[in-house]
């Protein structure tokens, strides 16, 4: 019932994008997200979208998969587009009725922003699709390691994230099971007032807490059995190496961003 969520899922592969240094990939994804907000004209936006399509091809993942990542945020896209269509009233009016005024400028803005959001989501899902969650937290840990100087325990944070990612599917499954078990005892989860519904959650939340604590305790024991003693003296199986390809990628993204800025000066803005 609760399964079928694909955001944050990893699809193993061996493409250039899969093999990229995760740290660089993470930084460049953020850079790309920022770059998507630079263009004020169609040409610039086309460059940004073109770059995205190029990376999707590089990842060798089916384009359908990337499109699927858009699905959950479709309501947000529709909502913002609607807002833009109704609230931007500059430009040539196309439709006028009562309080609804639709203009060319409204449509342009709506389309422009929708494309921006889609690129942004598709770009970041490409990161999680091509990088395993553990590698990602690992990359984060390494990127944030300078913060150790200010006594922030980066390793523990990353470990917590890894464990959370590992146990989310397990806990979703468990919630499903507990809900079914309580329903089998006649629990009514679907009707009643708000208060009644909140109260109806108690038989689900308490067993879930109890089992999470039991799991936490057992996992801690298992980690001790495997000689875990924090980040000190710990090595990693997967090394992160910057390779020529990573440097090329950085250059390409920087060039693209510069190009987008130049385009903003050369071409008239459309929004």
């Amino acid at each position: 019932m609760l399964s079928g969520i694909t955001i944050g899922q990893f699809f193993p592969g061996n493409s250039l994008l899969h093999r990229m240094d995760a740290r660089i990939k993470l930084v460049l994804t953020f850079a790309y997200i920022a770059a998507v907000f630079i263009p004020r004209n169609w040409a610039g936006l086309a460059v940004a979208v073109g770059f995205l399509i190029f990376t999707i091809l590089l990842s060798r993942l089916p384009a359908k998969l990337v499109l699927k990542s858009i699905k959950p945020i479709l309501p947000i896209i529709i909502f913002t587009s609607a807002l833009n269509i109704f609230y931007v009233t500059d430009g040539t009016p196309l439709f006028d009725w009562a309080f609804i005024h639709i203009t060319t400028q409204g449509l342009t803005t709506a389309a422009f922003i929708a494309i921006r959001i889609i690129s942004l989501i598709a770009g970041s899902s490409l990161l999680t699709y091509t990088t395993s969650p553990t590698t990602l937290t690992d990359a984060l840990e390494r990127l944030l390691s300078p913060l150790k100087a200010v006594r922030l325990n980066v390793h523990e944070l990353a470990m917590m994230m890894t464990i959370a990612l590992r146990f989310i599917p397990t806990l979703i499954e468990e919630t499903d099971k507990i809900m079914s078990a309580q329903k089998a005892r006649g629990a009514d989860l679907e009707s009643g007032s708000l208060m009644q519904r909140i109260r109806a959650l108690i038989p689900i939340l308490i067993p879930l807490f109890v089992s999470s604590f039991r799991r936490a305790y057992e996992l801690a024991t298992a980690m001790e059995c495997r000689c875990y003693r924090g980040g000190e003296g710990r090595t990693r199986m997967k090394q992160m190496h910057m390779r020529a390809f990573d440097i090329v990628c950085i250059a390409v993204v920087v060039l693209m961003a510069a190009g987008l800025i130049v385009l903003n000066f050369v071409l008239p803005p459309v929004i």
């Binding site: 990893f10 395993s132 969650p133 553990t134 890894t162 464990i163 990612l165 590992r166 039991r214 799991r215 057992e218 996992l219 298992a222 980690m223 059995c225 495997r226 000689c227 875990y228 710990r234 090595t235 990693r236 199986m237 997967k238």
Partner: peptide
Amino acid sequence: NQLVSTIVEEDVAFGPE
């Protein structure tokens, strides 16, 4: 409750790491 990582091989690497 004794597997730590989201990928099998990374989990097996946990001890040696």
